[in-house]
Design a protein around this nucleic acid. Structure first.
Lengths: 174, 174
DNA sequence: AGAGCCATGTAAGAGGTTACATGATTAG
DNA sequence: CTAATCATGTAACCTCTTACATGGCTCT
């Protein structure tokens, strides 16, 4: 779901064909630094997005090169994308991938919205922290405490990173 | 794979039937605090472990209750388990689930081995940290730096947690 | 009488991984 | 002439999630 929304975001910026999208996820790119995406999966995602009518395709034949299918985002796709771009992720483990994708695309599509996105994610993260502190209180088992302490450590680190992200994320310098 | 090894570990401690194993993963238990496990998945795992001949089953009929299939670990299963219990996990995201399971079972099966397991995991974690620091040096893109900084923050938090775990993990007090 | 425990599973679907398949073109 | 680029996919496989199916027993 996360990668599909990222594809929607790229197509909002500018219609593209599959091969162009692939290059956005090359290893040496920022996006490629966040997720790996094999051609098989990309084309599967595109097929799914098309079935859902969040994108439409038009085939462009070329003289010397193989024909391309250029994808465009539909209004329904834009609505879907906008909702996704505004919601923080609910699980800590989704920060690594899904939240970074949201932030990356929000920055390209609507830089002003990033502040709010980060702020809302911080609220979610703070919620976990207080919940975990409560759980730690009630946990008597040594190992159980260790488990909770790991989650606390991770969420604290992410909370601090979000704070830093809030101050550092500026409009992309193209 | 991680959960299957955890099941092997529980069966090494003592042969059990499916329903007993389910109860080990109840919400209010330590194991249940690490992973959720639905009956459907548990029985699927058991079937797979049986096919691989890491466990064997014997059916016990009861007078008043439904018959049970009691599972025992085989020598091949023990070998598999021991290898798993000694290896640290290679990816940061696997600390949350797989490493905690390893540690939990190592603690029950061979408490003396936990020190080494944690030490080796710290080496892996340190490796990531130096690699990430190197990547940060070479990254010129602002957002790319932010991505790397998130990973750094997480690995630093985990490194500190592992340090703490090394000093706190003692034999379980049954 | 009804809720929940005992005890086992199946089935459908979503999602990802890996590898393969095709075939022309252009750059070194 | 060989390797990489352009451009699209398919197929097999594994894993997890969710929900359902069965049916007797025990406790309140």
């Amino acid at each position: 779901m996360a990668i599909e929304h990222a594809v929607l975001g790229l197509l909002l910026l500018e219609p593209r064909h599959g091969y162009q999208l692939m290059k956005e996820f090359d290893e040496d790119t920022v996006l490629g630094g966040i997720v790996r995406l094999e051609p098989g999966m990309l084309y599967a995602h595109l097929k799914k997005l098309e079935r859902a009518e969040w994108i439409t395709a038009s085939t462009q034949t070329q003289s010397t090169r193989p024909p391309r299918r250029v994808f465009e985002i539909t209004p329904a796709g834009q609505a879907k994308l906008n909702r996704w771009l505004q919601e923080p992720v609910e699980r800590t483990r989704d920060l690594r991938l899904e939240f970074l994708l949201k932030l990356y695309l929000a920055r390209l599509i609507d830089p002003a919205s990033t502040t709010r996105l980060i702020a809302e994610q911080r609220v979610v993260c703070q919620g976990f922290l207080t919940s975990l502190e409560g759980q730690l209180e009630g946990e008597s088992d040594d190992f159980g405490r260790l488990v909770i302490e790991m989650r606390l450590a991770q969420n604290q680190a992410l909370a601090r990173w979000l704070e830093r992200a809030a101050s550092e994320v500026q409009a992309p310098s193209n």
